[in-house]
Design a protein around this nucleic acid. Sequence first.
RNA 1: GCGUCGAUGGCGGAGUGGUCAAUCGCAACAGACUGUAAAUCUGUCGGACAUCGUCCUACGAAGGUUCGAAUCCUUCUCGGCGCA
Length: 417
Amino acid sequence: MSTKAVTFKVEARGKGTLARAGVISTPHGDIQTPAFVVVGTKASVKSLMPEDMTQYVGNQVTLANTYHLFLQPGHEVIKAGGGLHTFANWQMPTMTDSGGFQVFSLGAAFGKGVTKFAKGDVDTETSVPAKAGLNVYSQKFAEDHGKLCIIDEEGVTFTSHIDGSMHRFTAERSIEIQHAIGADIIIAFDECTAPAADYDYQKEAMERTHRWAKRSIMSHKQNYEALKKQGLYGVVQGGRFLDLRQESARTLSDMDFDGFGIGGSFSKEDLGESLKVVNELLPEDKPRHLLGIGEPEDIVNGVLMGCDTFDCVAPTRIGRTGTIYVQTGVMKTTPCGTFTYPETKKINLLNEKYKTDHTLLDPLSEGYVAGKYTKAYVAHLFRSGEILGPHLASIHNLNFIVSFTKNLRAQILLKYS
RNA sequence: GCGUCGAUGGCGGAGUGGUCAAUCGCAACAGACUGUAAAUCUGUCGGACAUCGUCCUACGAAGGUUCGAAUCCUUCUCGGCGCA
């Protein structure tokens, strides 16, 4: 009998919902779920030290990105540096995303005002000028192809957004790189599709992702060293089409993954329904990670529908640009009665009114930063371009969402164990 | 005192007879952000109504030339530099 590097144990199950609390065990420690996964794409949670995470954020797990680390500093460098945990001093469970999201962000989404999360009319696209700083080679490639990567059956050819160099990702290559990086949980290479993609394309992309999933498992199993230290997740796709989502969940359930990512595009309205049909089919004894989604309400929804972990760049991205999560003071209860949680709003500290608002960042939150620094001070830091502003706002937002998710876990355990 | 150069919207700084309410940058004011192409991006930015738009007041001040002036002329005010 083989010993799995990553295992999952359900501790409590909700009634009338798919919600559950559990523990994911990894070589670098346990993750008590539901849990929020902090994103540190380039082996850096922007503006934070790992010590900030343990002392002020309270997250249990951090996620980095295969594509970005492959380009910089190179996975071999990280391997030589002792692997991600040692190299980055991330003394906690870690994950790496496969690069599948970059197939979307540098591909279908490139230069367009679309996100993977459609709100309302999915066909709405606004042209977004290519970001300044794109080097001349990738600029040329973007002009010729309208994007920075090209997909084929075997894999994806990327043009580095950094220096224009060409790189090839396949399922095997992504796994190989993730082995070198050394995160506890790695993810099979997939194709994240655009919300606007039609049924035929979603189906085609999903089936391709399934073939890549199979190859990813093969590849992972061939590396005995990695197998002992790393767990592999497969990624459910299917876009906004429920039958495809179900087909994807069924197909992947039959494969020997240690857990599942749920990826691709959704619409705000039917996120819950999409997750429900998927999680009803995925094996109960394996963890489910909702990829890239994590506004507070989404997390409530996701937990209710059976997701265990969530990652999202929103807390750091909006924090870095001056927006923080704040409790309104209103408590909300889900229709099923499972959860009571604080209503959340986002406020932009750069707004004029906060110049002289000497109240705490979020008086109702228990986070260290929330209860120690005032809006007026942090607003001043942002206005004056002080790097401490983005730092404090990021810590606060991260702590906010991590605590928010932990609170949901506590309620499951309290009511159902 | 003489000579010379200059005075533009909150600031810096373009414009040198019509296409100028005036390029651009900063500041300011808003908005966006969901597996990070992001310490980023977008919009507004003289005033009043306000949907394109219309009407006022504007390029140191006052006059003048001209169909028309931020742009040309005169005087004045203020500032830099040079000579006394």
